[in-house]
């Protein structure tokens, strides 16, 4: 409670001081009213709608018309269309323009042809095609163009590059190709499953476990009776009980490579052991072992 009162005092103080700090925004009533965020940017302003006004329409965009002080404009993810770009024809100071992920197409690009200072143009994920190339060639200051996920052809991009040798065109990856490769790879097992060797119980002690790399063992009990699973500890090699595996059952056990797993019968009489390896593996406990009568 005390805290919330303190907060309220702070908030009140902040509101009193707010005009001092946000003078810039107050000078832009039309843009801020349309949901735009305005910040100072060396000799002009940057205007952004992409995080604050995704509902921005062509009508709302009229607030920027004639503003030659706008250096950077971000319209990503807004609801503007080709008709809205008409408001940009007068932005002669514009150097950076984000139109990605909007509904614009070739018809709108015509409005941009006069932006002689434009250096950065982002058009990824729009409906533009090679029909826009004629207008894009007019943008003689353009340094960086983004056309991933558009219908501009490889040949079209090459022609644009020839016309504007200083332009960097970022075309991005072919997603269909990547998805096809990923689907193909998913079908191949990444690490082949191997069968672990069964060491029947004998006079020799099973080796102690040594920590290695994470792996997985799938135990399969082929006996007609349940067995017990023990892990041989590091160092002195004591046995630690982990699980019962019922007759005919399978158990998935995460472990490390070079671990020793001892199998006993229900009375904890040893039957044999497995030693884990780096690959995921199958450890098949045989139907009968040597010390059992057939």
């Amino acid at each position: 409670m005390v805290l919330s009162i303190r907060r309220r005092i702070f908030q009140a103080l902040f509101l009193v001081l707010l005009p001092t700090f946000t003078a810039l925004a107050d000078d832009e009533p039309a843009i801020t009213k349309a949901g735009g965020k305005v910040t100072g940017l060396g000799g002009g302003i940057a205007v952004e709608f992409h995080l604050t006004a995704r509902d921005l329409s062509d009508v709302g965009l009229a607030c920027v018309a004639g503003r030659t002080d706008i250096i950077s404009l971000n319209l990503r993810d807004t609801k503007i269309t080709d008709a809205g770009l008409m408001h940009l024809t007068t932005l002669s100071g514009l150097k950076r323009l984000h139109l990605e992920r909007t509904a614009i197409s070739d018809d709108g690009i015509e409005h941009l042809a006069g932006l002689k200072n434009l250096e950065y143009l982002n058009l990824y994920s729009t409906k533009i095609t090679d029909a826009s190339l004629g207008y894009l060639k007019e943008l003689e200051s353009l340094i960086h163009l983004f056309i991933w996920e558009t219908d501009i052809s490889d040949d079209g991009a090459r022609r644009l590059q020839t016309a504007l040798p200083n332009l960097k065109i970022t075309g991005g990856v072919d997603l269909d190709k990547i998805a096809a490769e990923a689907a193909k790879k998913a079908k191949e097992p990444t690490e082949p499953m191997v069968d672990l060797e069964w060491h029947p119980a004998g006079p020799a002690e099973p080796p102690v476990s040594v920590t290695g790399t994470f792996t997985t063992v799938y135990f399969e009990n082929k006996r007609r009776a349940p067995v017990k699973l023990f892990w041989v500890q590091y160092g002195k090699g004591g046995l630690k009980f982990y699980a019962d595996i019922g007759a005919g059952k399978t158990l998935k056990r995460n472990t490390f490579s070079d671990a020793t797993w001892v199998i006993t019968d229900e009375n904890e009489q040893p039957l044999g052991y497995f030693r884990s390896v780096l690959n995921p593996s199958r450890a098949v406990i045989p139907e009968s072992s040597l010390n059992q009568a057939p």
Partner: peptide
């Protein structure tokens, strides 16, 4: 890195 680049 690829994705950040192609999205600008």
């Amino acid at each position: 890195l690829t994705d950040l680049e192609q999205r600008g």
